[in-house]
Design a binder for these strands. Structure first.
Length: 475
RNA sequence: GGCGGCAUAGCCAAGUGGUAAGGCCGUGGUCUGCAAAACCGCUAUCCCCAGUUCGAAUCUGGGUGCCGCCUCCA
């Protein structure tokens, strides 16, 4: 069954055809390691993870590369022209490298929690400066650069296809809408390949153009080519990168090699919070830590992401996340009831599942197949086999449902203990009352037993009688 | 000003010409001493107007509303 993918370059859904039969090359624009990973990042990387899992499911061998931007290139939040990494370093009294390593580590930890597979190759910008210098040299040789007091600049007017990728209307675009115009540049869209004459910049390398540091875009071109060759099958990223970062990547790469840079571009739409952009200044920037504080496990977020299409903005609300976690818990509980998986999967369900995932990653549709399967009257061991088979793509850890459920219980309990120091004491009391109630129930003294339920409720618990005994649940 | 996206039940959403997937919530029932859990059932005509068509959520035109981008950003 062919895999269909929406290609940003053509704005059409295309049939995926890898260049090389042996493997698929896939490059994902990684993070800039200067702050904590938030759920918007995780949306984008969950999407690339799903794409990778779908390709692997389809039998492709994947070479997945992701960069880590650990060299400063950006201005601060206030557009002061200062490097974010350096701002962070000064604030925390650390070196930029320390800052970058710290937040990079945080990032990988978060992705593990989200069950996002690690890329085969992880490359840091600072460790590939010479690759970038070589690429800039090539561009200079090909006549696409000029020099200003800032450094080596890419001349976008030399690359006629420049506006095509993002459908830019350069003539009507408002230059300098947000950033001061650099009068030395020939065109407002020209961008720096190598920045010199910045004595205050903490990270500097020698080059034939003088001491300096690379522009942001060059790292992705240099590193993707180093590990995957001059033409990539797939390049992924956030939708915000289309007009600038990816447009510039294409320009530098294609002008350096004379070859097509990427065959398929996929971009994940933004995650909004209450239909508004998530940002630090609005105070609606959430991390997995924030979610954990409200009793949500990371995989609930993953399930939430599976409910929609990566090409549409996803609207994060606590209510929606709660719905996702409730559904996931129900799914895990179903898995607990299932026997050992059979050797055989249920072909009709797998067919529907594959049709969905190969249709531009239609995970919402694929999940609907799961629920159809659960309510079907098929053989339980075949159900289990089918579910676990599908979970290779979903990544919801269905095979370890018991552990996942107990992790969730532990999380809730930890939160209760941290909110209420007397929690364990109360729990102990409640357990004593349950013993008492059990005796009363045996004697069919139901009114008294119900009175004890009320007492337990006052301690903050509800109780459920099950065949395995009475379960205490925090309210 | 330019560019792009979105609008489906209380919430999250799938669906691109043939009479609306799925999840959550709600609700009715079975079960239970009661309750909970579990299970079974129910719950929308698709922002507005006009048009094309035998037939439109799905195509065309015009509105309205929301979001994002225009060299910080996943």
């Amino acid at each position: 069954m062919p895999i269909k993918l929406f290609n940003t370059a053509s704005r059409k859904v295309e049939t995926f055809q890898p260049l090389n039969k042996k493997y698929v090359s896939m490059y994902s624009c990684g993070i800039t390691a200067y702050y904590y990973t938030h759920i918007g990042h995780l949306y984008t990387y969950t999407t690339s993870d799903l794409l990778r899992r779908v390709l692997e499911y389809a039998g492709y061998d994947i070479r997945h590369v992701m960069n880590v931007t650990d060299v400063g290139h950006m201005t601060s939040d206030a557009d002061e022209g200062e490097d974010k990494l350096i701002v962070g370093a000064k604030k925390e009294n650390k070196t930029p490298a320390e800052i970058a390593r710290f937040y990079e580590k945080c990032f990988w930890e978060e992705t593990v929690k989200m069950n996002i597979l690690k890329p085969n190759t992880i490359c840091r910008a600072t460790e590939h400066i010479s690759d970038m210098l070589h690429l800039i040299e090539q561009l200079e040789k090909n006549g696409y650069t000029y020099k200003t007091s800032v450094g080596v600049i890419f001349d976008t007017s030399k690359f006629a296809a420049y506006p095509n990728f993002a459908k830019l209307n350069l003539a009507k675009q408002e230059a300098g809408a947000r950033v001061k115009i650099d009068k030395e540049r020939k065109n407002p869209w020209d961008f720096a390949l190598w920045v010199t004459n910045q004595p205050n910049h903490l990270m500097q390398w020698d080059s034939k153009w003088g001491k300096g540091f690379p522009g942001w875009h060059i790292e992705c071109s240099a590193m993707s080519m180093r590990y995957l060759g001059e033409t990539l099958d797939i390049h992924t990223g956030g939708i915000d990168h289309i007009p600038v970062h990816h447009t510039n990547e294409i320009a530098q790469s294609e002008c350096a090699t004379g070859k097509k840079f990427v065959n398929y571009w996929t971009h994940t739409a933004f995650l909004n919070v209450n239909n508004t952009k998530m940002s630090k200044s609005l105070g609606n920037l959430y991390t997995l830590q924030d979610l954990a504080g409200k009793d949500f496990v990371p995989l609930a977020l993953r399930y939430f992401f599976l409910g929609t299409s990566y090409r549409k903005p996803i609207n994060f609300t606590w209510e929606a996340l709660n719905a996702a976690q409730t559904a996931l818990v129900k799914l895990w509980k179903h898995c607990l009831e299932l026997p050992a998986p059979a050797c055989e999967v249920l072909a009709p369900y797998i067919k529907n599942f594959e049709e969905a995932i190969y249709d531009d990653l239609n995970m919402a549709k694929a999940l609907a197949v799961v629920w159809k399967l659960l309510e079907s009257k098929e053989d339980a061991s075949k159900k289990a086999a089918t579910l676990f088979h599908m979970d290779k793509v979903f990544g919801l850890d269905l095979a370890n449902a018991r552990t996942q459920l107990s992790n969730l219980e532990n999380l809730k309990k930890e939160n209760l203990i941290s909110k209420d120091k007397k929690y364990l004491e109360k729990e102990f009391k409640a357990l004593k009352l349950i013993e008492h109630r059990y005796l009363l129930k045996q004697q069919k003294k139901y009114q008294e037993a119900d009175a004890i339920r009320d007492q337990i409720k006052k301690l903050g618990f509800s109780i459920e009688d099950s065949k395995d005994g009475t379960i205490l649940k925090p309210i």
